[in-house]
Every structure is written in C-alpha cells, then in structure tokens.
Design a protein around this nucleic acid. Structure first.
Length: 574
DNA sequence: GCCGTTTTCGGCCCGACTGTTTTCAGTCG
C-alpha cells in the first residue's frame, strides 16, 4: 500500500469517528496522522512499528494500525466502523455546510445515507422537521448538492496566484489606502491551492461590500463586518479578512498557516503563558498584548526565529527556528541561468534566436537549449544527425548576446528498457544532457526503477528531468523507488531537476527535500516551450524553498565556468 | 489517540459567521 492509500483509510476513520461523535482529540489524532502520512517522503508501509513511532503524531496504536494495513491491506478497526454506517454516508460530509453532526442526525432521524436520498428529502421539505434545521438550511443543502461537482478540485498554484492578483488589484483600486496581502496556501507556495485567502489591513467594513461585489463573484457564502467568503467563477473560493493595523503580523501569521504549523506555534505560546490569535499575542493571565504588529515580533516573543512561509508545514521548522538552524533559502535572484528549454527545432513555439534573445533580456548568464530526441516523434524529436546540426547552430550564437553563453543540449528520452534514445557518441559531443521519461509511464515499480537506474549509468547524463513525470491534478507520479534513484544520482553525480512547469513542479517540495538532505545537486529549470514561459523560474524556486533548498544546493546558481566544472561530464569521477 | 523544560495523567488552537435559537450549536478555516 502506498502512503496515499494508507492516509485515505486513516482520514476515513477520522470521518467516521466524527459522525459517531467520538472524542474530538482522538479524531484529530487520526486526521493529523493521515496528513503526515500523505506527505511522508518514504513509503510508510516499509517501516516497522518502531520506525513509525518516530513520525510526529504517530504513537503506539496508530503504528500498529498502519502495520496491519501494510501487511493485510485492511484495517479491522476501519472495517468495523464502516459496518456501522452505509459507506455512502461519507459523501454527505463533503457537502458545503454539512458537517458530522448534521450527517449523524440525518441518518439517525430520517435514515438518509446517500446524496440522492438527501436531495429528495430536501425537495420534499422533510428536512425542516429535524430540530436545528429550518427552511434556509434546507435550501442551503440543496444548493450544496447542486454545487458539489463544481466545488471539488484544487487549482494550480500559478492559476490561483493570477486570480488572487486580480482580486487584490480590484480591491486596491477601490481602497487605495488599505494593504491587501494574499496569505494561506498561496503564500506558502503550495503546488495546488484549495482557496484564496486575503488579509486586509486598515480598512473599514465597507470593504466587504466591495469584495462581494467583484464581477466574478457567483455566490456569497458569508458576509460579516470583518470576514467574508465568496465563490468565484471557475469554482474558486475566496476569503477576505479585515484586521486593524496593530494586528497586521498576527493576522498574517494566523491566516498563512499551515494549520499544523499554527497548532504547534499556539501550543508553544500556551506553554509559555501566552494566548495567540489573529489579533495578537497576549499574556494569558492579564490579557496584556505582547506582540502582533509584525510576524517577526510574534515568533521572537515565542523564543524562535521568524519562519519563511514556505517552511510552515510542521516538517521540522519549529525545532529549527528554536535552535536557530533554519536554512537560508534560495531566491529567484540566486539563479544565473536556465537549463531546460525547447525551440521550434522540436515542439517549442519560438525559434532558437527568439529564445536566446529573451533569455538575454531576462539577464541570464547562460541557457541550455534542450530539444526533444527522436523517440518523441510527436514532438518532432531530433535524431543524432539533426541533434548535432542543431548543436552547431546553437554554438554559433555564442558571442551574439553580450554576456549570454548558450549550451548545446538535448532532452533525451529514456527508453522503456532504460537505454537512452540517442547514441553515446552523439551525447558525448553535446554540452549538456537532460534525460527524461516521457512514455510507458505505467510500468510497475520495479521495471520503472530499473529503467531509470540504468539510464543514470550512462556517463553523458547530466540531469534527470522531471523525475516523477507527474501532471498535477491530472496524472499521478510514476511508480518508482525514488530513494534508490536519489542514491544512484548521488553515486553518479547526476543532478535532479525541479521542473517549473506549473502542472509539473517535479521534483515536488517533499522529494526535493529528500534529495537535498542526501546531498544530491539540483537544477531549477523552466522547460519553456515559448518565450513567455521563460519567466516562470519563480515557481520552481518556491517549490525548492518548500524543500528547504539553499543556493548552494542548486547548480544553476553557479557562474557558467563553475557550472561546467560541476556537470557530470566534466567530473573526473565519471 | 498523542504527548511531556510543570505532567506518564490530563491536557489537547481559536474565533467569525449562520441559522435557529431565546442563549447556542454547528460549520469552517
């Protein structure tokens, strides 16, 4: 069982316990275990009980339940809970405005266990017979049922950022003196975002009318004097929170999250005799305000360093902030070049000269032109002859753009058996080789691992491109033993790519951290297929930051000569 | 069910908004 499946079972147990009305803290234990397992870098099914207990939030009982799941594929406890309710009851929990208490009441009073039952009962006006449910709630439930298909789904980070920027500029135009800041998962740079959170500082409640009046607002979920929620076209939910200036930092800290990070921070506050909320940090006994204007002030008062938003995921950042060992994270300004892009020679939209000129305008010191190889026929991939001719054209441009070095490269397919798509002597004559998997993505774990390990043995491979081949919200990562790939990359001196395509961001934050912790060099590359796409390095950088990556971990922070020296092909250990 | 710089027992983050209420429970983030 993979981590995702195990996490799903744990989350379902939490849902079922909630409907049963069990102890809230027990529920939280299952819920937080599900979250930590879902993002744990190594397969937890392969860990023994003792190793499992080193994972924060997993104790004796949960370790035993995970072992059971790993060994037998089922959890008796889960099965037992499922037997108490029709499993379809869990679908009801997903409806906006319907929580565990309502689900339990619906089932115990009207025996409602499916969305269809619920819709029928609501239409017939039978729900309002239940204590605590009136006509409005009934209508709200019907609406939630209609909207449920649209509500599902998260959005890519880049799209969320664009929508948020649009919202902010709209609000700003109506309230020039108010400060608006996107917070939440967007500020943390999560690869996908479920909603948009914006903090407004220093305005009055008329802002809320402006907010719900945005032309893209389809539904107002709630509107108060300091907080409003709306549903936007494109099924985005957006929340606006208004706080006074003196609470700016507290509100940013609170609404940036993550939830797991905040729970730990607040726990720390409590232990030190404070109370922390979105308005500030207060002494518990006297309510005297200790901090709140700045985030830095809050963390400082709690005896820790300010934590970069990207690190706030409860992945060791609290301990590091207390110990003063937080990493200095990479920034876009640290990057000197871009090592993965395409031109019209294969499937790019813009030609070689246009791409080079654009890279020059961006201030890059070097770029690698890496068109596809012949196996990707659909993309007009290059064979050996065309690849070398293309390389000659690329090199001929050196000197044309002041300060820009062009490296003649290729993105060479890794064939299903692990051979590379182009002959060794061709690869040897290029300056730079990215090797990538593009096809036969459904190979089993063993086959895929063997395939990639074999490719990494080729001495001319400098970088492994988008290592897990995932497409966010569309396609799962390939099945592969990533720790083995990372070990092989380390052994052979191959760098791993963080691909900046919005739907790739591959390596992911968690996997980038894994590679970085094992001392494997990374590159951050756009994989641009057009001039416009050259600008998206920031998304890969943000993913890297979430992976605790420092400038020294990334090869394209180096100048061109130092970069060349670090490439595998120029290393003596080849 | 987890966890420990006060604890191996007794805690466990906190507030806004809504709807159905005459003082609060449920949901959400």
């Amino acid at each position: 069982m993979d981590n995702k499946s195990i996490a799903q079972v744990l989350a379902q147990i939490a849902d079922l316990l909630e409907i049963k009305g069990e102890n809230a803290f027990k529920i939280r234990a299952y819920r937080s275990a599900a979250e930590v397992v879902a993002t744990w870098p190594d397969p937890v099914a392969r860990m023994d009980a003792q190793q499992l207990r080193t994972i924060p939030g997993i104790g004796k009982d949960l370790a035993a339940k995970i072992r059971e799941l790993a060994e037998t594929g089922v959890s008796p406890y889960h099965q037992q809970l499922l037997a108490e309710f029709p499993p379809t009851i869990l679908d009801l929990l997903r409806l906006q405005g319907v929580g565990p208490k309502t689900v339990a009441t619906l089932y115990s009073t009207l025996r409602i266990s499916t969305i269809e039952d619920l819709a029928a009962a609501a239409k017939a006006g039978r729900l309002r017979s239940i204590r605590g449910i009136g006509a409005k709630k009934e209508a709200q439930i019907l609406k939630a049922i209609e909207e449920r298909a649209k509500d599902q789904g998260r959005h890519l980070l880049t799209e969320t950022a664009a929508t948020a920027a649009d919202l902010v500029s709209y609000l700003q135009s109506h309230a020039p003196d108010v400060e608006f800041m996107p917070v939440g998962s967007l500020r943390r740079g999560c690869e996908t975002c479920g909603d948009i959170d914006i903090v407004a500082v220093g305005g009055d409640q008329t802002l809320m009318d402006v907010f719900v009046g945005h032309p893209k607002v389809e539904q107002v979920l709630g509107q108060g004097s300091t907080k409003s929620s709306v549903k936007l076209a494109g099924s985005y939910q957006a929340d606006l929170r208004l706080v006074p200036r003196e609470s700016r930092g507290a509100a940013m800290q609170y609404f940036t999250g993550s939830k797991a990070h905040n729970i730990i921070v607040r726990d720390r506050a409590m232990q030190r005799g404070f109370k922390l909320n979105e308005y500030g940090l207060f002494k518990s006994d006297t309510d005297e305000k200790v901090a709140g204007e700045t985030e830095e002030g809050i963390y400082q008062a709690l005896g820790m360093a300010w934590v970069e938003p990207e690190l706030r995921e409860h992945r060791g950042e609290i301990e590091a902030a207390v110990a003063g060992t937080l990493p200095t994270l990479i920034t876009v300004g640290d990057l000197r070049g871009d090592l993965h892009m395409h031109t019209t020679a294969s499937d790019g939209k813009d030609d070689l000269e246009s791409m080079a000129a654009a890279a020059h305008r961006l201030g890059h010191q070097y770029i690698a032109i890496t068109d596809h190889s012949k196996a990707l026929a659909m993309a007009n991939g290059l064979d050996e002859k065309r690849a070398l001719e293309h390389a000659a054209r690329i090199r001929a441009l050196n000197g044309r753009y002041n300060g820009l070095t062009l490296l003649a490269g290729i993105e060479c397919d890794i064939l299903p058996d692990g051979r590379l798509d182009l002959a060794d002597d061709c690869l040897a004559q290029l300056d730079f080789v990215v090797a990538s998997v593009h096809s036969n993505l459904s190979q089993d774990r063993q086959q895929m691992t063997d395939r990639i390990l074999r490719a990494l043995e080729c001495p001319w491979v400098d970088v492994l491109g988008h290592p897990t081949a995932r497409r966010l919200l569309k396609r799962d990562p390939i099945q592969v033993d990533l720790p083995a790939v990372i070990a092989a990359a380390k052994e052979h001196g191959v760098a791993l790519e963080i691909n900046c395509q919005p739907e790739r961001l591959d390596l992911s934050d968690v996997n980038a951290r894994l590679a970085r912790d094992r001392g494997v060099p990374l590159v951050i590359s756009t994989d641009a297929h057009s001039v416009a796409a050259l600008a998206r390095l920031r998304w890969g950088v943000q993913t890297a930051r979430r992976g605790w990556v420092r400038p020294a971990d990334v090869l394209n922070t180096l100048g061109v000569d130092a970069l060349r020296a670090r490439l595998r092909r120029h290393r003596k250990t080849r």
